[in-house]
Design a protein around this nucleic acid. Structure first.
Lengths: 350, 350
DNA sequence: ATATAATATGAGAACGTCAACAATTGAAAC
DNA sequence: GTTTCAATTGTTGACGTTCTCATATTATAT
């Protein structure tokens, strides 16, 4: 007597439903779907037919529960209105999805408390993420806490003790940028240097700046360094501060393109011409500076490469179980546009 | 005789482990954790102690499987290097996380095939998303397919038949922008109008432009309309095209801020001064234009509101089961900066 | 004191998938 | 015609949570 086949058409079909329709066990269905070798061709066909007849769609949640792999990565960033982070999310998401992983993004507002940060982390961990990319500065208490968890973690910002770091070669990039300004004859080069106390990133860029000066035999002068922050507002106010204090400079190395753009507006409003009176170089290389007036020279950061490598390394660690610590930096690239020019003597002599 | 309590300390603790330690059933643990009223206070304490002793962390995946709610929303956008989408992702993610939902973002590359789009959709559906926000134009075949799925869908771009739409009042925004230019005395107002064939968004903005002209008694002239696209490059080439064709204009209404910024660079390179020779208004209101030189007037889009409302509406539909179709548009706001000025007669007479 | 209801807990099963193991078939080897 | 091994399929149970139903236990009302 043929068994009665009852399939609830309200709910989406499961492997069991497919199995019933195809007249095989659910395990066989699973074998077909996971390309197990030991399945007779005729069986495979039957199963696949049943799948499409029922519009079967695998339930990744159930799979995750069973295999203890969520196929999800966590990504902690600063708010996406900062294009740097948007670009990073972009690249991480694309890379992850190439491996059938999805990304759960958590944005940490600036100045969020350690408690809040821990909650966000918990949010990710409850979702059983297989790995975590930390792309913005987190409280030491939080990174400490991460060590006790058994998932792979990679940082792309401040290095975290015990975990791998992937980022761009900021020191070298800053060195090249400042060296270029020096080659153009500039000696009084202001540096709009991001937040204080300095994050790893700011430090690297400041170091590169100093190295370039040193190698060119130019004395470092603290008064040319302005610590305001990372935004356009900060660049704007930074320039005003320099001018108000009567600091002389013929070039600016900005900690990023936002700061540079803000600085440019301040200079513009003060009637200071770029690059005639002041040359300026930013850091980031996103489209922002490409369309500024004049177009901004900048240090291109290989964000796409960083994002992809972070994903691939995490997944490697997921699969191998080992957690070899590495530190990889991708080279930056100096992009010259029209915001830099040779030092004009009349300014230098002024 | 006391039962032996064996807890595997390698694996993370489950409710069962907590139950064993607390000497209650796992159901009771669950009741405590879900704030069920019928739990004796002393029991509750015991359970909570056991939880923290074992570092218990709920497994949302298991919960999802059982409750058939993934606490995940899908979000389909264009690549995040476009700040509009980055801002939308930002707001959606923040709003979703306020309700303990996470967001799975899928980026559709420009010009991706219907097949590719369906795969991306499948990617989301396999992850059992509870709802979907479609924030970029998708192939009709794909939106058709969505109808057969039983999850709530909301569009913020081209309206999708059968689903709610939430967006900004682009027609009105464009109307106000162009009306403002007209009030300044401009009559020959070019419109850099986004892609052709026109998306819903472009159409709305073009309509607003036309309405404003009509209401002011100015004849519409097709030659002032340039369909290039949405990027800075498009704005740049659009202006060059106008100039090459000898079209006279004293103002530009750009379909978005990118286009405007690209246009500004082209004008700058041609020695045309903003706002002295040409006034320009963009559309979007993100920080891009705020720091351009000169700062760009623009139509602010309430992206944050749109993102949040989309999330809240989706969640409402998830919980109520009903799918009443609504259409909500949030008002835009004209932001005047220094890229607009009164028409100068010497230009008009030229 | 006893009925009645509210409070408090537990047992068992199910969500959909997948891993380990067991069982069967077929075919080649002796 | 067994033996042997590879190929093919099935059975059972578990992942961690939560739902339904049943079973105490206590409080309140009669």
């Amino acid at each position: 007597m043929k068994k009665n086949i009852i399939i609830d058409s309200d709910n989406p079909a499961s492997q069991v439903d497919v199995a019933k329709l195809a007249g095989v066990s659910d395990m066989t269905v699973h074998r077909v779907l996971s390309n197990h070798p030991y399945v007779r061709e005729s069986t495979r066909r039957k199963v696949l037919e049943a799948c499409s007849a029922l519009n079967y769609r695998p339930n990744l949640l159930a799979s995750s529960l069973r295999t203890k792999k969520s196929y999800a990565l966590g990504l902690i960033v600063a708010p996406l209105k900062v294009t740097y982070f948007a670009r990073l999310v972009d690249s991480v998401e694309v890379a992850a999805s190439d491996f059938s992983y999805h990304t759960i993004v958590v944005q940490l507002q600036k100045g969020s408390s350690a408690k809040k940060q821990k909650e966000e982390l918990e949010f990710l961990l409850q979702r059983q993420i297989d790995g975590l990319i930390v792309a913005t500065v987190v409280d030491p208490e939080v990174s400490e806490y991460l060590l006790s968890e058994s998932i792979p973690v990679i940082s792309t910002e401040d290095p975290i003790k015990g975990f791998s770091w992937i980022g761009s070669a900021d020191l070298q990039g800053a060195y090249e940028a400042v060296s270029h300004l020096i080659r153009l004859g500039h000696k009084k080069i202001a540096h709009l240097a991001g937040n204080y106390p300095l994050s790893y990133t700011s430090k690297q860029r400041l170091e590169g700046y100093k190295h370039a000066l040193t190698d060119a035999g130019i004395d470092f002068s603290q008064e040319l360094i302005v610590h305001e922050g990372w935004t356009q507002e900060d660049g704007y106010s930074g320039v005003l501060k320099l001018l108000d204090n009567g600091i002389k400079f013929s070039a600016i190395f900005a900690a990023n393109d936002y700061v540079a753009v803000g600085a440019m507006l301040a200079l513009y409003e003060k009637g200071i011409k770029i690059p005639d009176d002041v040359s300026i170089i930013g850091f980031a290389g996103d489209s922002l500076g490409q369309w500024s007036i004049p177009p901004l020279s900048t240090v291109y950061q290989p964000i796409e490469e960083v994002g992809r490598e972070a994903v691939e390394l995490i997944l490697k660690q997921c699969n191998s179980g080992r957690k070899k610590q590495v530190k990889i930096s991708y080279p930056t690239k100096l992009i010259l546009r029209s915001s830099c020019a040779n030092l004009r003597f009349h300014i230098e002599n002024a």
